[in-house]
C-alpha cells in the first residue's frame, strides 16, 4: 500500500527584501509503500530537507500534491490539509526528528519523553514506563533522566530527540540528518531503533550523509540533483 506519494511537488522561497524567489525543489515525483525505508542523499542545498519539511508542513508547499494515506483521516493531501489536521497528524501519526533539540525550558529529560506520550492521551503510568524504556534503550544515563537537557552533550540531546519522536510509535517518521553529530556507537543504537520501528510497520524517510549507515537498511535510495530527484538504487543495499 502506498502511504506517501508526491506528485509534481515543488517549493520555492520568496525572499521579500531581496525581491527574489529561490527555487528549492521542482516537480518531485516519488512514492513510498507502508513499512519501507527511503533514503535521500545529495549535496547540501540540494533540497533534501525541503522535501521532508514540506511533508511535515514546516514549509508551505507551493506546487503539486503530497498524498498521505492516514490511518484516521483517510487519504489526505498534506499540501492542502488544514493546520488543525496537520496538528492532529503530527500528534498521532507523523514524527519528525532533526539534529536540533527544541524543547520547553526547565523540563527534565524524563518529563519531555513522558509529555510526548501524555499529549497523545496515554495514561500517566504507561507514559512513565514507556519513557523509561525509551531512555534505557538509547542508553541515556539514568543520572541524566531528571536533569535538564540544556547542558547535555550534542549526542545526548540527539538521543533524547529521537527518543521523544520514536516513543510515540509514529506511522511515518521523517529523519532529517538525525545522526549528523553522533559517534559510531550511538549511530548503531539509532540503527537498531530504526530496524525495530520498521518491524513494527513504521514507514521511514531519512536523510543521512553516510552511505554506510544506510547499508542494509534502505529499501530505496533517491539522489537529489539540481532540485530534481532520481532513484539511485533500489533493493536492500548489502555490504561488499
Amino acid at each position: 500500500m502506498t502511504i506517501v506519494e508526491l506528485n509534481g511537488f515543488g517549493k520555492a522561497f520568496t525572499i521579500h527584501h531581496l525581491n527574489k524567489t529561490i527555487p528549492a525543489v521542482n516537480n518531485i515525483q516519488f512514492s513510498m509503500d507502508a513499512g519501507e525505508f527511503i533514503g535521500i542523499i545529495g549535496k547540501s542545498g540540494s533540497g533534501k530537507s525541503t522535501i521532508l519539511k514540506s511533508i511535515y508542513r514546516t514549509y508551505l508547499p507551493d506546487a503539486g500534491e503530497i498524498i498521505y494515506q492516514s490511518k484516521q483521516l483517510g487519504r489526505i493531501d498534506l499540501a492542502q490539509a488544514t493546520e488543525r489536521e496537520m496538528i492532529f497528524l503530527r500528534k498521532n501519526e507523523i514524527g519528525y526528528v532533526s539534529q536540533f533539540l527544541n524543547v520547553m525550558p526547565r523540563t527534565t529529560c524524563r518529563e519531555l519523553v513522558q509529555n510526548a506520550l501524555l499529549e497523545m492521551g496515554e495514561t500517566r503510568e504507561t507514559a512513565r514506563t514507556e519513557a523509561e524504556n525509551a531512555l534505557t534503550h538509547f542508553e541515556m544515563d539514568p543520572a541524566l533522566w531528571d536533569s535538564y537537557p540544556n547542558t547535555f552533550s550534542g549526542g545526548e540531546k540527539l538521543r533524547l530527540n529521537i527518543a521523544m519522536a520514536t516513543v510515540k510509535k509514529p506511522r511515518l517518521l521523517l529523519l532529517d540528518e538525525p545522526t549528523a553529530s553522533l559517534d559510531q556507537h550511538s549511530k548503531i543504537k539509532v540503527r537498531e531503533m530504526i530496524e525495530k520501528l520498521k518491524q513494527q510497520g513504521t514507514t521511514l524517510v531519512g536523510i543521512f550523509h553516510d552511505i554506510e549507515f544506510m547499508e542494509g537498511l534502505c529499501d530505496k535510495v533517491f539522489d537529489m540533483k539540481t532540485n530534481q530527484m532520481s532513484l539511485a538504487f533500489e533493493g536492500v543495499l548489502h555490504e561488499g
Binding site: 519539511k53 508542513r57 514546516t58 514549509y59 508551505l60 493546520e83 496537520m86
Partner: peptide, 12 residues
C-alpha cells in the same frame, strides 16, 4: 497565520 513552526521557518 499558520502552524507556528511554519511561520518561524517559512514566513510568507
Amino acid at each position: 497565520n499558520g502552524l507556528t513552526d511554519q511561520i518561524l521557518e517559512d514566513p510568507q
